[in-house]
Simulated assay, not measured.
Amino acid sequence: MLEFMDYVQTAFLAQSRWNIDNSYASLTTTAHHLLDFHIPQGLRLHVSSLSSPRFATSYTLGSRGVVDGSLSFLYSSAGLSIASTSRSVHLESVVRGYRHLQELQRPDERHWNEIWHAGRRVDRKDALLYGRLYLPTSTLEALYLRRISPTRLLRLNCVSDGALPNGGSVLALLQNDYGKYSTEYLYSTDSALLGLRGLYNFGYDPRVPYHQPSARLPAHPWDHQSGRLSAGAEAYFSPVNKSGGVSCGLRFTTLPTHTGFPYTMTLTVNPLMGNLSSTYAVKAGRNLALCSRFDFNVYSYESDVVVGMELWQRKQASVDVAWASKLVRPGWSKVVEDDVNGVLKAQMDNNGKVGLLWECRIKELLVSLGAAFDLKKRERMLGSVGVEVSYSS
């Protein structure tokens, strides 16, 4: 489940019309959410608040043998209109599950966001500041996001910790999203790492919606193809360590116009290390998603298989509620209640390791209960158990 501050950051990106799925870094996001979900350890309590549309705070207290916690503060230059209380937040907004990718959108023109007053530009570029202090280690984490232009986003991640070389590190990431393709440039002060990423989407070009190639031209201007194939690659190099790496990948996913079951397939290759990974995820029903991943190394012939699922439990809508929803006229305000009771996630690999996670809402609290098992250890199958409780106002 997303922490409150991650939920606010996601809302900031969505409100500033930034597509988080159109990047090479998010190529395998669907499989990652279904197979590599976080299992709580010990007991952890989150108390958060969006005191104003621009300012949020969060406090965390945990116990995993030793009491620890954190203090978080966030400021957004753009006022955020989102549900902030834990009783009103929709579970589907904070639970990371199967991702339905939308059709690509045409980037905004620069002059669309310009605001002029008395012959002077008075508009400001949206920005977000976030800081988190971990206790008792006194580790400081900071994030700075800035929408430089409709097609460009600057991200700065900073960590200050005496245990790290030079006392900390800074990661700068410049992202460009042109709809048809995206690029990313990164630099890290840790080993002076330099990196480059890119993603290209075949087929429909949102920049010229009415001038598509004849082979791809749909029967109707608004009737786009029902799937999208994307290809990307990344390369990075550290002159300090004199080492680098490279990887490439493919993704095919169905779009909302697809009439069958939504599904996503990915293939990523690291030629230097000899690693190959393929994933397949399918939304088998409104409440069920299945996923599998196969990893293989061409040098050592080692392989791993992981399978997982997520099952949503929804409320049964009463007849009165169903009729009321039909009688609502345009312009009437209506509170839409969350119809989800909870979601069960499970994953298992070929080594006998099993993970279970149940996320739900109890009264005004968001609760995550998880456990990890190792079926090969008969004397101690239960590896860890944890509970996370979140409350926001």
Rank of each mutant, 00 (worst) to 15 (best):
L2S: 10
F4G: 03
F4M: 08
D6K: 01
V8Y: 04
T10Q: 12
W18S: 06
N19A: 03
D21W: 05
S23M: 01
Y24H: 05
L34N: 00
D36H: 03
D36V: 08
P40F: 11
A56G: 11
S58E: 15
G62T: 04
G62A: 06
S63G: 12
R64A: 07
R64N: 13
G65N: 03
D68R: 01
G69T: 01
S70M: 04
L74S: 04
Y75M: 10
S76K: 02
S84L: 03
R87I: 08
L91G: 04
V94H: 07
R96W: 02
G97T: 02
R99K: 08
H100C: 02
E103I: 13
L104E: 13
L104T: 04
R106T: 15
D108K: 00
H111R: 11
W112H: 09
E114H: 00
R120I: 00
D126C: 07
L128Q: 09
Y130H: 12
R132C: 12
R132Y: 02
L133A: 13
T137P: 05
T139I: 11
L143G: 03
L143E: 11
Y144I: 15
R152Y: 08
N157R: 10
V159L: 10
V170K: 02
D177T: 05
S182P: 08
Y185V: 13
S191T: 11
A192S: 10
L196W: 08
R197G: 15
R197W: 14
L199A: 02
V208G: 13
P209F: 05
Y210E: 10
P213D: 15
L217C: 15
A219E: 15
H220E: 13
S226R: 04
R228G: 10
E234W: 06
Y236R: 07
Y236Q: 09
N241M: 15
N241K: 14
C248L: 15
C248K: 01
G249E: 07
G249P: 05
F252K: 02
P262N: 11
Y263D: 07
M265K: 04
T266K: 07
L272G: 09
G274P: 13
N275R: 02
L276K: 07
A281D: 12
A281S: 09
V282C: 03
R286W: 09
F294R: 12
F294H: 01
D295E: 13
V298L: 06
Y299I: 10
S300H: 09
S300A: 12
D304K: 14
V306A: 11
V306C: 13
V321D: 14
A322S: 14
A324E: 12
V328H: 10
P330K: 06
W332K: 10
S333P: 12
K334R: 09
D338T: 02
V343M: 08
V343G: 01
V343K: 00
L344K: 00
K345Y: 14
M348P: 15
D349R: 04
N351W: 03
N351P: 05
L356E: 02
L356P: 01
W358V: 09
E359W: 09
C360Y: 06
K363S: 08
E364K: 01
D374M: 08
L375F: 08
V387H: 04
